[in-house]
Design a protein around this nucleic acid. Structure first.
Lengths: 201, 201, 201, 201
DNA sequence: AATGAATGAGTATTCATTCAT
DNA sequence: GATGAATGAATACTCATTCAT
């Protein structure tokens, strides 16, 4: 699904072994640095940790956004892959909760990405789509199972919930009532178990 | 409650009229710029919008953090002040919901502040305390009223809820189970109105 | 000989009492600051020590060089005045040595002045002349007396000697008698070839 | 003796050819600029003359003091090396005098360094030691030879003499033989009391 | 293909000087 | 006349990006 470091969508021959090593080292280093210092961290910090020259980074990721996007996709893939595994191991409500926590962990490493996404740089245009395409089905399945088991209501919107937790990475746009829905969900959480009976009462 | 731009806590004579004008213009400009471009925005952007020389900024806010902190406090004050007003105008649950939305608006203008708060710069040490001291009582009152009206459960922790919404500004620390509680609250929101009865049923 | 702070050569009415106080405070403060941090020290340091606003400084000394020159002249006068006093109190050679040491003390407070003098700024053009006109006769008299007493050779050039010591626009660490030894070496140089035979003769 | 631009005392691989060119150009340019405008001259002046980007300067000399120190050491080395050469070519007194004049030339290019040395910046701590370690033995040898030849007294302290001249951080105007006369006066001071009779003998 | 040196635009910050109060 | 706030030019320094080795 990730079709390469620098030019998504173009076919190319397999990387030379040393080049592959560089790319891997860079992605690993960048993931760490982004998590620690945000996506605006100095490039030197990344190349130093990857033990690679600056030129090597630019060969594989001509734009800084290419590196950010590659790291992002790689981690989306990893996180999304956990969903089915958890579903197979746990009861539906438990699997749902565990995956949301895993997802929150993913979000927590994205400091500064929100700003980048809203910078207007078209290089990031594909990221929200990637995010949604990979996460929404996973969460939808988990919600479905839990709803079918009668553990949660059946009208929950997976995309809303993803953003509720991930609001850091995908924040408020004008005329967006997402925040409202998120807060209403939190308030429902507060009402759950209150003296007053829920809806149907 | 905010006792001045550059030396919080010390008494001083009132600013000269022109100086006061500069400070006001700077705070207003900075608030806008921070909301638009984050707290790392170039200083020039702020001075240009305030129509003030760079030196004037540095006279009143010798450190960038002084400016950030002043803007922050000013907006905390403004947001906190809305709580009682809403409580007087609306039913408890409505007042609570409206204030949380107002608070989410406050949070939304704090892009990049989270990174600053976690930069280790001691200049920001007082901010989380200021945040908590001013917001927690306001929200506590709103929750109390709603709980006494039987509209929500009575065990809601205002600080947790503030962070649930404001996680952008006060994000995950290691060994912190806040995220877990927040997610559980969201899940409760999902369970609210599900077939299964809540706690006391 | 010094005809006023800001406009040498022009007649003016006596300063108002408060103005005179400002000028005195500025000169005293500047002398100290120049000695400590050199003539390039920030203006604020001077106005702060004189407890005077920046505008006051510029009223009396429109150019920085005016202030430097005024301090310079004032201290030249003071140092030159010591010559005759010493001549009346001590033997010629002793008086000469003591005055050279006093002169070295004058020079030691002039850090950075040398650079200013060679900056090409015409504002300083008169300083070397003032220096020479006031110091040369004083030293010439002291040398004369010593030569007539047979204590030193009679061909010593006062101007050369002033510059030999005066060039040192430098260090003097506390408790360091290096300047004294250097002057004594120079005086030995003057004694070399005098009528009186040297040490071992 | 100078083991490299930015990290004195550490072993390192030889610089790449282009880097070496940059360093050399920078040192040469800095030496000129320092001599002309003092060690506080704008960095741009140096990089412009070296035809090098600002970043290149900072790569090799992260602190301004590193550049100053490197230039200083390089010139100390060059000046010290002249001593033995002169000793081999001239009579002791002549060699001594010539070297002192050469040394005065070295000092004359050090405008503003004195202030830097007394700035308290620990980056300069090693400079006086370097100065003393390299110059004192050279002058000691020259003084020794002259003393053994009976041309000067034998109690002259080389360190004192270095400072006597060194303090004179002299402007040196063109066609001005003042330094020469001053040095000759100091040498006369040294001769005063030597075995050989003065002038008229 | 990798390296890391060089570049230079971008930005913060200082400080002499002016001018409103 | 005094004050000190405002100005803005000057300058250091950083860091993304390019390119010689």
């Amino acid at each position: 699904m990730d079709d390469g470091p620098s030019s998504p969508g173009r076919h190319r021959q397999p990387l030379r072994a040393d080049a592959q090593r560089s790319v891997d080292a860079l992605l690993a280093a960048a993931a760490q640095v982004f998590a620690e210092s945000g996506v605006d961290a100095p490039v030197r910090q990344i190349t130093a940790r990857a033990d690679v020259g600056a030129g090597t980074l630019y060969r594989h990721f001509p734009q800084r956004s290419d590196l950010i996007a590659a790291v992002f996709r790689r981690e989306v893939d990893a996180c999304a892959a956990v969903g089915p595994t958890l579903a197979a191991q746990y009861e539906p409500l438990e699997a749902l909760t565990r995956w949301l926590e895993r997802f929150a962990g993913f979000v927590a490493t994205k400091r500064g990405l929100s700003a980048a996404l809203h910078s207007g740089d078209p290089a990031y245009d594909s990221l929200p789509g990637y995010f949604q395409q990979h996460f929404e089905p996973v969460l939808a399945d988990l919600l479905d199972s839990a709803a079918r088991a009668g553990a949660i209501r059946s009208d929950a919107d997976p995309w809303d919930l993803l953003r509720a937790i991930g609001n850091l990475a995908v924040p408020l746009e004008d005329g967006d009532d997402h925040t409202q829905r998120m807060i209403s969900l939190l308030v429902d959480g507060l009402r759950y178990g209150a003296g007053s009976a829920p809806r149907q009462a």
